[in-house]
Design a protein around this nucleic acid. Structure first.
Lengths: 209, 209
DNA sequence: CTAATATTGTGAAGTATTTCACAATCAAAA
DNA sequence: TTTTGATTGTGAAATACTTCACAATATTAG
C-alpha cells in the first residue's frame, strides 16, 4: 500500500481523536453522528472534520451524517488499527516500568510482548509478569516475536548504543521518550515524546499572558 | 507582557530544541554557533532557525553567528525559563508516581512541590519524600505554595470532578496525561500528552509504507 | 585597504493547512 | 409530490508556515 498522497501529521492526530469520540458514541448507542458533533467534542470545526475524512474517502451521507459504527471501522482501517501491534519497552526505569503496567495500551491494540534493559542488575527480573531481557538480545527477540514498535525509555547516556541495536533489530517504529534525537536508519519511523518540552511550551504560554 | 503577535506552536517546540542544543554547546565550550549548526542538530533548516529567532529579535551577528551563552539566555527569557516554576502532580498511580521521582523536571526548572490523589487509601502516604494530599485540599495548597502548573495523571473516571477542583484552584496551566479533553476555564492553558495517540500515529505511518 | 569568505536578518515566493460557502443529497412533513 | 430542514463533500479563498535568495555586515588574509 504505497500511498503517495501526503497526509498532515495534524490530520492524523485529529483522526485519533475522532475515533475515541466515535467509540464513545457507539457505546452510548448513537447510530449516527454529524461532523458538527465530532467537531465540538474534539475542539475543531465541522469543515475540518469533513475535510480530514475526505482525505480518505466519502464515508457519510448528505443530510444524515455518518454511521457511528461504520466510521469507527473506517478510521480504524485508515490508522492501521484493524489489527494488533506487538511492541517492546526498552529501559526498565521508573517510567518504563510504569508504562508496562498501564492497561491503556492493550485496550487500544498494542500488546507489550517484550522488555529490555541495559543493566545486568535488572536483566532476568520480572516486571508485570514479563521477563526483562538484555538489550543485546533485542535482534533475536524482535525477529522471534515479530515486534514492530519499541518504546524507548532508557537514560540518555545509553541512547547511542541502544539506537545501534534498534537499527539492527528489524524494528519499524520507535516511540522515543528520551530527550535525544535518535540517529536511526531512514526506514524507521520515530515519534518523540518529551515531557519537558511540553512543560516549556506551557511556560511560554503562561509567560505571554 | 501582553504580546499580541501570534507565535506558532511548532516554533516554540523548536526553540525548546535549540535551547537544549545550545546548552550542550556551552557545556562543550563553543563560544559561537551558526544557524546551520543548530539546524543540522535539530533536524531543520538554517533559514527556519533564523526565522524562528527573528520572531523575537535579532540575536546574532552577521558573518559570525550567535553567541552560545547569550542565545541560551535569550531563549530562556523567551520561553519564560528565567525563573523556576512550581508544579503539582495530581494522581498517584504508576505514571504519576514515576514522574515524581524523575529528576529531569527539577533539572530544567520545574519543582514538584505538591502531590494529590482522590483515594483515601493513598492520601497521607509519602511519595519520594512528599506527602500525598486529597484533591479537595487543592485550592488551599495551590494558593499557599503558589503552584502554577499541574500535571494530571488521574484515571479517566475521575477527570470531571478533578477538573472542577482545578478550575477553582487558581492554577494557570495543565499538562494533561488523560485521554479526556478537559473542560477548563478560558484562562487556563492546557497541553495534552497522549501516549496512545502517538502510537496510533506510528501505526498509521507504518501502515502506509 | 581590498578581496575573499562566512553568516545573519528578512522581504518575497512557495507550500501547506484551514476555513468558507454552496451545490448535492437525504428524510420527514405537509 | 413538493417543500422544508439537515448535513455532506469539495472547489476556492483565506491563512499560516516554510523556504528562498540576497543585501548587509563581520572577520581574516593578503
Amino acid at each position: 500500500m504505497s500511498n503517495k498522497k501526503k497526509i498532515a501529521e495534524s490530520a492524523i492526530s485529529r483522526l485519533s481523536l475522532y475515533l475515541r469520540i466515535l467509540e464513545d458514541m457507539v457505546e452510548e448507542g448513537e447510530p449516527t453522528v454529524s461532523s458538527q458533533t465530532m467537531a465540538s467534542q474534539s475542539g475543531t470545526t465541522a469543515a475540518q472534520v469533513r475535510k480530514d475524512l475526505s482525505l480518505f474517502g466519502s464515508f457519510g451521507r448528505r443530510g444524515l451524517g455518518y454511521s457511528s459504527t461504520d466510521l469507527v471501522s473506517r478510521i480504524r482501517q485508515i490508522l492501521g488499527l484493524n489489527r494488533r501491534w506487538k511492541i517492546a519497552v526498552i529501559g526498565m526505569g521508573r517510567i518504563g516500568s510504569a508504562l508496562v503496567e498501564h492497561k491503556g495500551f492493550f485496550d487500544r491494540g498494542f500488546d507489550i510482548v517484550a522488555l529490555f534493559d541495559t543493566s545486568d542488575f535488572k536483566v532476568g527480573s520480572n516486571v508485570h509478569g514479563l521477563k526483562v531481557h538484555h538489550v543485546n538480545d533485542m535482534r533475536a527477540l524482535v525477529q522471534d516475536k515479530n515486534i514492530e514498535i519499541v518504546v524507548l525509555t532508557v537514560p540518555v547516556e545509553a541512547v547511542t548504543d541502544v539506537t545501534d541495536l534498534i537499527n539492527d533489530s528489524g524494528v519499524r517504529g520507535i516511540l522515543n521518550w528520551t530527550p535525544a534525537r535518535l540517529a536511526v536508519s531512514q526506514s524507521i519511523e520515530v515519534k518523540n515524546v518529551n515531557m519537558v518540552m511540553e512543560l516549556e511550551a506551557l511556560s511560554f504560554k503562561l509567560s505571554q499572558s
